[in-house]
Simulated scan of single mutants.
Amino acid sequence: MEGSVKRTKDSGKGNCRPTHRWRQDWVNRGFLDEEEKQPQTVTWDLAMEFLDLNGDCDSWLLQIECFDPHEPFFTQQSYKDLYPHTYAGPFFDWPPYRQIKEDDPEGAREHIRCQYAALLSMCDRNLGRLLDKMDEKNMWEDTMLIVNTDHGFMLGEHSWWGKNVGPTYNEIANIPLFIWDPRHKLAGETRNALVQTIDLAPTIYNYFQVQVPESVVGKDLENVIVNDIPVRCAAVYGSHGGNINCTDGRYVYMRAPDPDNDNLFNYTLNCSHMCQGFTREELEGAELTGPFGFTNGYSVLKVKKIKPKTQSGQLNMGDFLFDLKQDPHMEHSIHNEEAEHMMKKHIVEIMKENSVPEEVYVRYRLRKE
């Protein structure tokens, strides 16, 4: 086909990703030979077009989701040149999700961090386009701006690559969040209150003076922005089926499931894993259940999870407890019965507030009452 790009069967294989993914990615790169063609740039171009058309109007919402910085860490050479380094190993800009191995290429850690930094610089440039546009249209006077992301990524910290497989260290869980609220015009200040991404929805609802639906469990952050008033004493987070993680800002506790309990279920009306549909075996055992507080009055399918061969799951590496005051980099898990009891109590209370199904308490060896 005219315009197609030929690659050898080993092209890009150093990225260590499942075959269909790295091959498709490698084909795509042949067509992304200019920055203007990359999906991130196209997304930001459309965002700038939206602001040109609607920036002077009232009561609009624009969410810019560019997916980057995300592996594979693919950028044009001009960004790579910002981070010169020496690396003689195989092609590598798409790290696997696993622990670092002794036979990983020499210098891989520095190399992948430079590749990531290059992509982050591209993100910075495009974010700068938005800030310039807000300057140009004097939008700072009446437009809220929220800059955040969904998770971090391990680039060799704690001897791990990636996410969602090993422990959810703060490099993954403690994400950037910047908010400009034109009602208060506070800039260059830091807040210490414990907040989560679930708080963004009620914050936006209240900014637009829209009543927050009862099913929304997050907290409006206006008082955090103004006076750093806490909205919660603890937060729970993690990956489905993996450790239940909890922090109160001082401690991080990671509660592992019972390794002998495989009663793990999806509660959903979307009969699909991320990359493939549910199997016949999964659907044959499904039952309609609920509604729960988090399903907005709808009953949903309860489907026992059977891990697909192509989908990795979080490893059960046991319980962890970290004291962030003494160990901010989470390098040494400690034993502290009083702190562990307190964190388990936080977990149970938050689970109850969120209508967590009964079998989850059993699987994580937690007492509901």
Rank of each mutant, 00 (worst) to 15 (best):
E65P: 00
L366G: 09
A88R: 05
R21M: 12
I146N: 05
V231K: 04
T149V: 05
T149G: 13
F320S: 03
D248H: 03
A47N: 04
W94D: 14
F265R: 06
P69E: 06
P72H: 04
D260W: 02
P308M: 11
T289K: 08
I64D: 09
E284R: 13
M144V: 05
N54K: 14
L127Y: 10
D135Q: 03
G107I: 09
I204H: 01
D132Y: 04
V362W: 09
K6A: 15
I306D: 08
W180L: 10
P84A: 04
P39H: 06
A235K: 02
N15S: 02
Q276W: 01
V42P: 01
D199R: 03
Y361A: 09
D124V: 01
K325M: 05
G242H: 05
A187I: 11
L51H: 01
E340H: 00
D58E: 14
F153H: 14
N296V: 07
F73L: 07
E106A: 15
W26F: 11
N227R: 07
F67G: 01
D93M: 15
F73A: 08
E222H: 12
G12H: 03
F322I: 04
P84D: 03
D258F: 04
E282A: 04
M1W: 07
M317T: 13
P291Y: 11
K219N: 14
L130T: 06
P69L: 10
W44Y: 15
N148P: 00
N170F: 03
M134L: 15
E281Y: 02
G238D: 01
G30S: 00
P291C: 09
G3A: 11
F294H: 10
T268D: 10
A88Y: 04
N192C: 12
E36T: 12
F320Q: 02
M330G: 05
L288R: 14
E284D: 13
H346R: 05
V42I: 14
N296Q: 13
E353Q: 14
E141R: 11
S59V: 02
I64R: 08
A88P: 00
H20W: 13
H158E: 02
E2C: 01
M274V: 06
G241K: 05
N15K: 02
T310S: 14
G318T: 11
E284A: 11
L264A: 08
R250S: 08
P96T: 09
W22D: 07
G30P: 00
F292T: 06
C275M: 12
N261L: 07
C275N: 13
K137G: 04
G238F: 02
E369W: 08
D104N: 08
Q99V: 01
I172Q: 15
L51V: 05
V231M: 06
C16H: 10
G188E: 09
Q63H: 11
L53Q: 15
D81K: 04
Y116D: 08
A201F: 07
M154F: 06
D248S: 07
L264E: 11
M144Y: 04
G293T: 03
H341R: 14
S59T: 06
I229C: 09
K37L: 15
L127V: 15
H158T: 02
Q99W: 05
L127K: 10
Q76W: 06
D56E: 15
